[in-house]
């Protein structure tokens, strides 16, 4: 297992250098987006300039954080990943349209996303599911949020400044998916265990 430090925004070359199994530590500006954001982008198709955060070379993090407003600005309490598979029907389009170089979440994604990763030069990063406090400690600052009133705090698009935010590459731009491999081996085990 190799640990690679990566800086945002990512270039295509950065992404092509990532392989399934690599551990990465991410530094820079991370954009969150989960169910509502993806549904909105896919259906309303806003132009890049209509979105307040720069998505070129960005990582979209599937995360619905706990954030509270304080006198000093936004206070982040907890920010682990949410299940990525729920945005499978949108993500391939989002990656191509907005120049996204990384998708981060948990549980992996399906064949449409895997195809888009290869086609566009993008990687899927799996961070530590449920480790919400540990991961919040790696967010230096919540810079701003978008669509907070419309989507609510948990589903808004947030811009985080992160330092050494850990994740594991589980789907790469070369067509490989750890999730596919595990699905296949677990299916063989299932058939053995039920005698089929």
């Amino acid at each position: 297992m190799e640990t690679k430090k990566i800086k945002l925004p990512l270039t295509k070359e950065d992404v092509l250098g990532l392989n399934v199994g690599d551990m990465v530590l991410i530094t820079g500006q991370l954009v969150t987006g989960r169910d509502r954001v993806h549904k909105f982008l896919f259906n309303e198709r806003p132009r890049k300039e209509e979105i307040p955060f720069n998505l070129d070379g960005a990582i979209i993090y599937h995360c619905g954080p706990i954030i509270r407003k304080s006198d000093e600005g936004w206070r982040l309490i907890a920010s682990g990943p949410t299940t990525s598979m729920r945005v499978e029907m949108y993500e391939h389009w989002v990656i191509g349209e907005y120049g996204i170089r990384g998708i981060m979440g948990k549980g992996g994604m399906g064949k449409h996303t895997l195809g888009a990763l290869k086609k566009n030069g993008c990687a899927y990063l799996h961070t530590i599911s449920g480790a919400a406090v540990y991961l919040a400690e790696r967010v230096r600052k919540v810079i701003d949020g978008w669509k907070i009133d419309d989507f609510g705090i948990a589903e808004a698009m947030w811009l985080f400044n992160v330092e050494d935010f850990p994740a594991i590459v589980t789907m790469d731009a070369h067509g490989k998916s750890l999730h596919d491999d595990i699905e296949k081996t677990s299916y063989r085990e299932l058939l053995r265990l039920i005698g089929l």
């Binding site: 297992m1 919400a132 540990y134 400690e137």
Partner: peptide, 29 residues
């Protein structure tokens, strides 16, 4: 050296941190 062990190590550290700082273990409460 496995990803599984690394992940569980982070999970256990997160449990300690959450208890010490009285913050939710997972953002999905």
């Amino acid at each position: 050296g496995s990803n599984a062990k690394q992940a569980l190590s982070t999970v256990l550290e997160n449990i300690l941190l959450a208890r010490e700082t009285s913050r939710p273990i997972c953002q999905d409460t």
